[in-house]
């Protein structure tokens, strides 16, 4: 899973919190890039705090924060620093159950992608369920196919804020969407 990461992933000092503040900033942003890269290549929408990919609400695979090939792993305080940085720079969203949604594209990008899909497929003014949108055959080949429902909700919220979508809720859960 981590094989395709850039070579800096195998640089041992990456795993130690650097004492120099300016250097540490760059180290953190290197980590952010690595996580985004990692999530993108593995098509991972959300990750646990430990750095593992979560699919179907089950964490699987190895942690990005542990590099077996050079026998290095990151300390817990430094890992929290990285996540903080991710959230601050809006590259991740922390959900309430300690899971991070990795935004290898921004939320705006996703919402415009969804909008684009509605327009190209002529689904405007039709009600489409979230399940259809994310898992249906019609979205195959689109980047947001397989997206985590919570993240999808975020993107749809954006559309609604722009006045382009009406959200259909059932038991406080968004079930469907109608784009106008």
């Amino acid at each position: 899973m981590t094989e395709k990461l850039p070579p800096i992933y195998n640089f041992p000092p990456l795993y130690t919190c650097q004492p120099n503040v300016l250097i540490r900033e760059q180290q953190l942003s290197t980590w952010c890039d690595l996580i985004l890269d990692f999530a993108k290549t593995n098509n991972a929408w959300c990750m646990s705090q430990e750095g593992t990919v979560i699919k179907d609400s089950e964490s699987s695979g190895q942690s990005i924060f542990r590099n077996e090939s050079i026998q290095r792993s990151i300390s817990v305080p430094f890992r929290d620093q990285i996540w903080n940085k991710m959230v601050q720079s809006e590259k991740a969203i922390k959900s309430n159950n300690g899971v991070f949604f990795i935004l290898w594209r921004s939320v705006d990008y996703w919402s415009s992608q969804i909008l684009q899909w509605f327009e190209t497929t002529g689904k405007v003014n039709q009600v489409v369920t979230v399940y259809e949108l994310l898992e249906g055959d019609e979205t195959l080949g689109w980047e947001f196919h397989g997206m985590h429902p919570s993240l999808c909700e975020e993107s749809l919220q954006k559309l609604r804020d722009r006045g382009r979508a009406t959200l259909l809720k059932e038991q406080n859960k968004i079930m469907g969407v109608k784009v106008v």
């Binding site: 650097q18 120099n20 250097i23 290095r72």
Partner: peptide
């Protein structure tokens, strides 16, 4: 290290 010329592991 403090000047950022060296990195520590």
């Amino acid at each position: 290290v403090n000047e950022g010329k060296l990195l520590v592991d």
